[in-house]
Simulated assay, not measured.
Amino acid sequence: MILPRYGERSLCEVTPSLLAAMGVPGFDNVLGVERAVAACLLVVDGLGWELLNAHAQDAPFLSGQAVGKEPVTAGFPSTTATSVASFGTGMTSGQHGIVGYSFAAPDLLYALPWRVDGVDARERLVPEEIQPLPTLFERAETETTIAAPMLQRGSGLTRSALRGGTFEPVFALGDLTAKILANKGFCYAYHGDLDTVGHVYGPGSKAWRWQLNHVDQLVEAVVAALPKGALLAVTADHGMVLMTSTVDFDTESALQQGVRLIGGEPRARHVYTEPGAAEDVLKAWQGVLRDKAWVVGKEQAIDEGWFGPVSDHVRPRIGDVIAAAQGEIGVVRTSKEKFESGFTGVHGSLTPAEMRVPFLTFVGG
């Protein structure tokens, strides 16, 4: 188990450190980033530290730059929605409240599409109310840009976690490169294809390795063209592992008893119980999953720092029982979550492969 290094070397410290390196007042440079006149944070979805090292031949530039460097950790769960919220707010999941891929708010909200029961929930669960803390982009006294796919423009997650920046839609790798190099202030740039290919074919597959090579060439080209004093930081929201075996909640009756609602994703489940059933549910899940997952009660997970400091309004969003997978297993829902249950590559748990991600910086000139 790798617990998040909140306050020291986690995703929560990334954006504040970059803003501080630019001299923007009000932020701490915890990560010791080199001074820069402008900075761009490139988030490569799914680029785990262990995956990068294991496939160094497919990413010679990035892997070469990673030699002698130290990774940072994702928060918990190690999943996109949670990590993006930490990039945007500088807060832990226990503070910003985006505590998973899906969570009780109080209806089960799927945070990436911002949907409840398959229906757009932006009016029902207003993003600015679900995550009311000021974002770093609202606080920063500098020009900020969000360079991401058009699909993310105005999305619930963008509104909740990244509001305050000027959204610049990205349509291709060349477009992403141009927008990064045109940045004069702070830029948050996102590339999601490595994660997509990993979900479909698995990390380490031929398709995934070719995509990693494309990302490597992208970064090398950007670094070569960086204006003097401009900084590029490359990191990720999580790593990824293969899912070679599953336990199906929708067919495993022992897991269903006393359960009111189940959130999260295959590698990190929030289990919301009926009143008075938490202890029985905890024992049942521990009995079924045994050494295949870390299964703990809400208070233990909070006390051990999985979610960092937890605000009062966030506490009800955390499951009464938390199941974080080990090995290559996942707790799926083949009837309720058909799409996610079919993934080959997955993430969300506390294993090193999911939690450790690169943090590499480059300054032009």
Score class of each variant (00 low, 15 high):
Met1Gly: 13
Leu3Lys: 14
Arg9His: 12
Arg9Asn: 12
Ser10Pro: 04
Cys12Ser: 15
Pro16Val: 03
Leu19Met: 03
Val24His: 03
Glu34Ala: 15
Val44Thr: 11
Gly46Val: 01
Leu47Pro: 02
Leu51Trp: 00
Asn53Val: 07
Ala56Tyr: 07
Pro60Ile: 02
Phe61Asn: 09
Leu62Val: 06
Gln65Tyr: 08
Val67Ala: 15
Lys69Pro: 01
Glu70Met: 11
Pro71Asp: 09
Val72Ile: 15
Thr73Pro: 02
Ala74Phe: 11
Gly75Trp: 01
Gly75Ser: 14
Pro77Gly: 08
Pro77Lys: 08
Ala85Trp: 07
Phe87Pro: 06
His96Asp: 11
Gly97Ile: 02
Ile98Cys: 14
Gly100Ala: 06
Ser102Phe: 04
Phe103Ile: 01
Ala104Pro: 01
Leu109His: 09
Ala111Asp: 08
Pro113Trp: 00
Asp117Met: 12
Asp117Glu: 14
Glu128Ser: 14
Ile130Tyr: 08
Pro132Thr: 03
Leu133His: 15
Pro134Thr: 05
Thr135Ile: 07
Glu138His: 07
Ala140Phe: 02
Thr142Asn: 09
Leu151Trp: 12
Gly154Val: 06
Ser160His: 05
Phe167Leu: 11
Asp175Lys: 00
Phe186Lys: 01
Phe186Asp: 01
Cys187Ser: 11
Leu194Gln: 10
Thr196Pro: 09
Val197Pro: 10
Val197Glu: 09
Lys206Gly: 13
Trp208Glu: 00
Trp210Pro: 12
Leu212Pro: 07
Leu218Lys: 01
Lys228Glu: 15
Lys228Asn: 15
Gly229Ala: 05
Ala230Met: 12
Ala233Ile: 03
Val234Cys: 06
Asp237Ile: 03
His238Val: 10
Gly239Thr: 09
Met240Pro: 04
Val241Met: 10
Asp250Phe: 05
Thr251Pro: 05
Val259Pro: 05
Arg260Met: 14
Arg267Phe: 02
Arg267Glu: 03
Arg269Met: 06
Pro275Phe: 04
Pro275Cys: 04
Ala278Trp: 00
Gln286Thr: 10
Gly287His: 10
Val288Trp: 05
Leu289Val: 01
Lys292His: 14
Ile302Trp: 12
Glu304Arg: 13
Ser311Glu: 13
Val314Ala: 10
Val314Arg: 06
Arg315Phe: 09
Arg315Cys: 07
Arg317Met: 01
Ala325Lys: 06
Gln326Gly: 13
Gly327Trp: 10
Glu328Pro: 00
Gly330Ile: 03
Val331Asp: 00
Glu337Trp: 13
Glu337Gln: 15
Ser341Arg: 00
Thr344Val: 15
Ser349Trp: 04
Thr351Asn: 07
Met355Asn: 11
Arg356Cys: 13
Arg356Ser: 12
Val357Ser: 07
Thr361Arg: 11
Phe362Thr: 07
Val363Gln: 03
Gly365Ala: 13
